[in-house]
Nucleic acid binder design. Sequence first.
DNA 1: GAAACACGGTACGCTTAGGTACACTCTGAT
DNA 2: ATCAGAGTGTACCTAAGCGTACCGTGTTTC
Lengths: 241, 241
Amino acid sequence: MKNAARLNSRGNLILSSLSLADYELLEPYLETVQFRARDCLEQTNKKVERIYFPYRGLISVIAVSQNKRHESEAGIIGWEGMTGASVVLRSEPALTNVFVQIPGDGRAVLAGDLSMLMAMSSTLRDAFLKHIYVFLIQAANTALANARGRLDQRLARWLLMADDRVPGDGLHLTHEFLAFMLGVRRAGVTIALQHLESQGLICNSRGHIRLINRSGLEQCCDGLYGVAERELSRLFAPRYG
Amino acid sequence: MKNAARLNSRGNLILSSLSLADYELLEPYLETVQFRARDCLEQTNKKVERIYFPYRGLISVIAVSQNKRHESEAGIIGWEGMTGASVVLRSEPALTNVFVQIPGDGRAVLAGDLSMLMAMSSTLRDAFLKHIYVFLIQAANTALANARGRLDQRLARWLLMADDRVPGDGLHLTHEFLAFMLGVRRAGVTIALQHLESQGLICNSRGHIRLINRSGLEQCCDGLYGVAERELSRLFAPRYG
DNA sequence: GAAACACGGTACGCTTAGGTACACTCTGAT
DNA sequence: ATCAGAGTGTACCTAAGCGTACCGTGTTTC
């Protein structure tokens, strides 16, 4: 999934998958936006203003418990996806928080415009629905990983998913940050990262993690990485195959 | 959510939420079906033949790891929902297993017919999309519960969700079955059930669990139950409000 | 150059839950 | 009436991971 640049001529996989007619329909409504770390793009029980199509950066979708005492990441979105599931599924408001975790840039469209455009073009709407399906699979597999995976496996999964979405090699992340993302203890992340490093899978330095051996990391995940990723390439690749 | 019978005049909440025109469009294509325990309604990487609208019974959606070594429940479906997310989202084949866990009955429609009907009526399609959104929220909250909840909390959540979907009071379930559903050890379920019983929340007997105090169980869940359920009543209730 | 701060390594005790094993108790079948 | 089997209660040991704390080491700031 990391090397899909050629499929991504318009900077974002969903936009790239659109027919010329659909893209020309949508394009006039797209603003160019910058994502800054910790920007909040959607909030539970709030109306969604804009839907985002990232070019770069990492956006994460966080489930929040009824009483707001618990939070945990349900899935992440990058150049392959879009935010705004509640708008595409015509069920506002959002019931998750959506945050920028790694800064970047992309395009955005107003929720009302998107709804109008989906009504105008069923092929456009279908492209969005396909991404919703990939995201649903991703969330289901996050549930699976949380239920069955050890910390080091979940960490490896997260690193692979982040690496898929961040250009260049190496991720600028702190242990603290990863601990928050996985909902675990900071010290536990330190241990798990050392474990991965001792196997030669990654290279740790202060605030920076480089993936050395992706296939080794995938093995480490014991199958908890890959289902959504395979689906993504299946659904979006054929146009270019 | 348990007492929503009056909203459910057609036996299934999605069917009940349809306008008369949409229901009359769909109805000729609906078969009546019985669900037997352990029937497999969808399988990973297989084409979906039929989409089901349960009247009674409990259906669970299981995420499977890439290497098939791990499985875990991502969400459950009963009288309030429908199967066939991959068809509604136009992204076949399925990437989850879908099984009948508690027998019952309902209606079914062929995948091809459903696709055709969705193309004919956008309001029909929107009703299905709304359920997909509820299910997405449910899956995200399963991920949250798996990440943060203790066994007794996850068990209480599961019992509430099952009770929402099964008529009458009392669930016919074994500890073994619950252990499989939650992906935990059978002995752990026994302990957790005793814990819940000692608080007067449930009543255990051989192969049978009765919920005594629903609001107590909800408190026990510490917020991990309720987000998807509230959304469900918000999305589907207004027509009848 | 020194102080302030962010980040990372390590340690201790504790809780939760897994693995395994065995025994008890209903229930239905013969 | 007895037996087999399913379902349940309990126990022991181990592993994973949490809460907390403290200390080192880079990095930035003044």
